[in-house]
Design a protein around this nucleic acid. Structure first.
Length: 435
RNA sequence: GGAUGGGUGGCAGAGUGGUCGAUUGCAUCGGUCUUGAAAACCGACGGCCCUUAACGGGGUCCGGGGGUUCGAAUCCCUCCCCAUCCGCCA
């Protein structure tokens, strides 16, 4: 959520920055105009209400004093004088509220502004590789590498057919060594990230609307979520642990000494994938349910840029330890998510698909989410509070990491070697093969 | 599911119809004292709106909404949230 004062005082800068998002290339100026118009109307209505209210309060005091002096006639005169104010106040208030609601609604669906070093672009084709972060190169196979689902199904450990009967498309049963591989990956990632300074957390998977508003899945992306009803109310299933982890500091005022606050969680994630019909329909790439180890950092504003680099290091750390080739791209302005001011995607090499696929996304959201959550901190030697900055990143998507391991560690005979780093977790198993 | 209690400033916690945005304590910040620190003492210390070049000034706000009243933090209704006890349950 943007600071209305900032838009008021820096309209031109705001419009220019917003226009860098392709969706607002044309509309940025009129959007700002609409917002500022509502803002002016809201403030006007608020001022009118407050002036009338002040008059009423003044009169009420005077009436009280008159009555105390037994001046019934004087009290009665004043009573008549302010009689009409009640209706006036209600009208004022109604108007003020209407404008405020409209204004908030407009602001709530406005995306974060890309920072200056985000490349301009329309879509994923305009993302720019961070060459210094590249790791490894496509491994050579002396056979045609298979896709993960071919391997998994041949091993008898990846069952889409039965998942289809039980739950439908975009679900899977993992069995035996692949189920264990998934568990091993999750544990391995948590072990690495806690060693990297993140506090392990086991968060709620069902959360309230307010939490979704905080991280900005709501109000705009309601249809991407799964909802569990409870009585008249409802809970949303988290699409990422970013939601409960970031909201950990909602409505808090933190001590500066507590920053940066780093938390991690390994959780299932649920996504409706509305609008993704037909995309990645085969295999485990895009599921309604998958597990992910998430990283969240809460920092002071001055720290967030460095923390973004650090977080990306932490995500890459997993791939490096697993010796999986990958590259990092800076998302262009058109490919960035709603809440982000800058995002790095990490893409792992998938030999079966013969291309890089996203396996992690690390975003700096600046104070955008903090405003929505009212998450602040008190700088040392200051009585005023400031909004924190929030960052989130996958460290990593476990399902997609499993895919990457299968495809990169496959042998000609359809077996899969267990990466060295995972050996301690696999109970002595060094190779995954059909049993 | 049943029964209670409660939501007030960073925190704790008063206030039950009239100069109450609100007593007090703690925390924080500034100052005095001190070689320095602590203690003690003095002072400051919420958001929002209007106004001002700024200092400042004014107004409004006690979970949300509605009602009663000339007047509501205070009374009534309703919604949301939190807590406790009982029942049931992993």
């Amino acid at each position: 959520m943007h600071d209305i004062k900032l838009i008021r005082d820096n309209r031109d800068l705001f419009v220019a920055a917003l226009a860098r998002r392709p969706a607002y290339a044309e509309a940025a100026d009129t959007t700002a105009a609409e917002i500022l118009d509502l803002d002016a109307k809201w403030r006007g209505a608020k001022t009118a209400y407050e002036q009338h209210k002040a008059r009423q309060n003044e009169a009420s005091r005077a009436i009280g004093q008159a009555k105390a002096k037994k001046d019934e006639a004087g009290a009665k005169a004043m009573l008549e004088e302010v009689a009409h104010l009640k209706a006036q106040l209600q009208a004022d208030q109604e108007e003020e509220r209407k404008y405020e609601v409209d204004l908030r609604a407009k602001l709530a669906v406005l995306p974060n502004l890309p920072v200056a070093d985000v490349p301009m672009g329309a879509d994923e084709n305009d993302n720019v590789e961070v060459v210094a972060r590249r790791f490894g190169s496509a491994p050579r196979f002396d056979f045609k590498p298979k896709e993960h689902f071919e391997l998994g199904e041949a091993l008898g450990m990846m069952d889409f057919e039965r998942a289809g009967k039980v739950s439908g498309a975009r679900f899977v049963y993992l069995k035996g060594a692949l189920a264990r591989l998934e568990r091993s990956l999750g544990m391995f990632m948590l072990d690495v990230q806690t060693a990297n300074g993140y506090l392990e957390v086991n968060p709620p998977l069902l959360v309230r609307d307010e939490a979704f508003f905080g991280t900005s899945q709501l109000p705009k992306f309601e249809e991407d979520l799964f909802w569990a009803s409870m009585g008249e109310g409802r809970f949303g299933l988290i699409p990422t642990a970013e939601v409960p982890l970031t909201n950990l500091v909602r409505e808090e005022i933190l001590d500066e000494a507590a920053l940066p606050y780093r938390v991690t969680a390994w959780t299932p994630c649920f996504r409706a994938e509305a609008g993704a019909a037909g995309r990645d329909t085969r295999g485990m790439i895009r599921q309604h349910q998958f597990s992910k180890v998430e990283l969240v950092s809460i920092t002071a504003p001055e720290q967030s840029e460095a923390e973004h680099e650090r977080m990306t290091d932490c995500a890459q750390d997993i791939l490096k330890r697993l010796e999986l080739p990958h590259r990092v791209v800076t998302l262009c302005s058109g490919d960035m998510g709603f809440a982000a001011q800058k995002t790095y995607d990490i893409e792992v090499w998938l030999p079966g698909q013969d291309r890089y696929r996203e396996i992690s996304s690390c975003s700096n959201c600046g104070d955008f989410q903090a405003r929505r959550m009212e998450a602040r901190y008190r700088p040392k030697d200051s009585k005023n509070t400031r909004f924190v900055h929030t960052l989130n990143g996958s460290g990593l998507a476990v399902g997609r990491t499993l895919i990457a391991v299968l495809e990169n560690y496959q042998e000609a005979d359809g077996t899969v070697r267990v990466p060295e780093a995972l050996l301690p977790y696999m109970g002595g198993l060094t190779k995954i093969e059909k049993v």
